[in-house]
Design a binder for these strands. Structure first.
Lengths: 204, 204
DNA sequence: CGAAACGTTGACCGTTTTCAATTACAGTGG
DNA sequence: CCACTGTAATTGAAAACGGTCAACGTTTCG
């Protein structure tokens, strides 16, 4: 799940210039229209980005999770174009825009590193987009597990509850559990308290 | 959708090194797995980036339009990781990878411009990913329209058929049309030949 | 003027969502 | 050590929804 090299550019800024901010559930980090002063990284928790419209409705743009950076576009914008609100108790690293820009403007290597990291991020996001095309819950789980699993036989260790994974992809946890039990019943996977083993099978 | 100032960095490369290529509708510019030799800019027409899955289905990763650059990741990749196919008669500028890298290494501003375009891509992809979490067709359309719309009342102009939009997100066109007529019948939207107006409503 | 697309709607079927209830388990305070 | 509480994990049943197949009107364009 994690983007390997993503966010490496956070290190470009002198660590003394970085701040840390703790957010209570529901607390806003910044609001749409507020002056764009920093880029952020989630150290723990979840931060939801929401855009509001003239008519009062709103749309979720993203939910940034552990290790993810967000509001990168603030580097080139005057103001934030969405709200960011903590979904749970969270901590974020605040990377001041001016410092980051300074570091980048003098340093072609650094700017290229940033671009490279973003390009990798684009690749990663596109890969996730592919997963989303799978509508069948069992197939989705199988595909997801293949990405997570390693070793022989392929095994995946869960570091978080299925409930959370379900929410992340827009399936209900019931659907997930049903699919899991079906897969287990038909012998495609084996489960032992948070550890899942994929069983070899005659199909893609 | 469009990335405004993107592509300023194309000018960095000596124009003698740039090539121009004309693509017939359906013609491929490059294929998944082919050696990554260049980055491109659409001068006119539309170029679709497609990835094929094992089960035969495919996902539209992006549709690059007038003025947009694409395949930036080729700068750091050995091979292209998706197909690119012209949707209509198109012309693209071919920016040789090696020349571009040379130019960027001497020019932080240009590298930053590149990063800017990529950041916009990231934003776009994150929003699409978030939209994918919505399974209900009516809700999906509403959210999508809210992102597309502007003005008060929020209005969106379609520049392509619903059929295409449906395919891009993995819904059938039937589902889309049904949802559209439901939304119109219940007074949430109004349609007039390619122009859609969102009606205010008492919910998020 | 036809052939392609696009747009639309109905019926049927399989899967997911919803609503609801139950079990399992970890952490907390008495 | 044990109720007590909250989250995670399960499962059932009925309702809602999208996929698929099919038919048909409409627009577009060579």
């Amino acid at each position: 799940m994690g983007i390997q090299g993503a966010g490496a550019w956070v290190g470009l800024v002198d660590s003394e210039r970085l701040r840390r901010r703790r957010l209570e559930p529901g607390e806003a980090l910044f609001r749409q229209g507020a002056s764009a002063v920093a880029v952020y990284r989630v150290d723990c928790g979840r931060v939801r980005l929401v855009r509001h419209l003239e008519d009062g409705s709103s749309v979720a743009l993203h939910v940034a999770r552990n290790g993810e950076t967000f509001a990168e576009a603030a580097l080139w914008a005057e103001a934030y174009h969405c709200d960011s609100v903590a979904e749970a108790l969270s901590e974020v690293t605040v990377i001041p825009k001016a410092d980051l820009l300074d570091a980048l403007e003098d340093n072609p290597q650094a700017a290229l590193a940033l671009a490279r990291g973003l390009a990798a991020h684009v690749r990663d996001l596109r890969a996730r987009l592919e997963l989303r095309n799978i509508r069948s819950a069992p197939k989705w789980i199988l595909a997801w597990l293949r990405l997570q699993a390693s070793g022989d036989p392929p095994t995946a260790r869960l570091d978080r509850p299925w409930t959370e994974i379900a929410a992340e992809i827009g399936l209900t946890h019931e659907a997930i559990y049903r699919a899991l039990s079906t897969l287990e019943r038909t012998g495609r996977i084996a489960r032992r308290s948070g550890v899942i083993t994929l069983c070899r099978h005659r199909d893609a």
